[in-house]
Design a protein around this nucleic acid. Structure first.
Lengths: 138, 138
DNA sequence: GTTTTTGCAAATGATTTGCATGGAT
DNA sequence: ATCCATGCAAATCATTTGCAAAAAC
């Protein structure tokens, strides 16, 4: 788990200023499973009433670019963010209710899959499983 | 390859009317590799000058829902469409120039991967490879 | 004090929708 | 003749940007 001091240290090491807004965003993403920008804003507002959605977008984009957060883009849904960035894991999304679960990668580190035929040099293999969760059906 | 009569038959079988707009959209998606809605519109306009982008969106959404087209949603880029729907193949995208290549799935049919731990019933495993294509670097 | 960050409003890009007309069956 | 499909304009949704004021360093 990440402590506030931990986040502050990471921000410092990237020459970013440690603001209460950034700490609130990081805390919110850390405790919500796979939160949208809007959900992050709502959660962070519990302690920081003046925070705006646009600022959250700016912060999320910056932290994602730094590698402190990971961004997930499910089909037909706004982007989600998570704090698990150190390992290569994938995601399963329920096509009925939209719930997202983490799925550990069998191999462990990216790229965990190598395509048989392509002219590209592959850096990352992202896997998105789609199915039905236990709440929505058999 | 798909012929115009082939597309017409498929439209019929789904209780859709066979219009020149729909045929033009299908032809355009068939000949462009991984076209955006805008590219499809431009291509289809070569023969159907009155076609609008909004109509193309409606048609693409409908044909995708019917399974006649497959929709790809690359990160930070508008959706792409392709006619290859019968098999389970994946995609590799160049993070530099955005080019997309088809990548055959080693196993052959969905789901080609089974997650080790999840409570969901997986229907599809979509893999998105990200890397650098031969034109953009080593 | 200097420079990054935030707040706010307005702009943008992609896609969807409502409704009247046109066209396929 | 019926009813679906298209054209058009306006609306919506997610996200980005410009700029002045506030806050870190």
């Amino acid at each position: 788990m990440h402590t506030e001091a931990d986040w502050a240290a990471q921000l410092h090491s990237h020459d970013r200023r440690v603001t209460k807004q950034r700490l609130a965003v990081l805390a919110a993403v850390g405790q919500l499973p796979h939160a949208t920008a809007e959900a992050v804003t709502d959660a962070a507002r519990a302690t920081l009433q003046a925070l705006t959605l646009q600022s959250v977008y700016v912060v999320l984009a910056d932290l994602t670019a730094l590698g402190m957060l990971r961004r997930i883009e499910p089909p037909n849904s706004p982007a989600r963010y998570e704090t698990r960035t150190g390992d290569n894991h994938h995601h399963a999304i329920c096509t009925s209710c939209g719930k997202i679960e983490d799925v550990d990668c069998a191999v462990g580190h990216a790229p965990c899959l190598t395509p048989s035929s392509t002219t590209m040099t592959i850096k990352i293999a992202d896997v998105l499983y789609q199915g039905i969760c236990s709440d929505c059906g058999p």
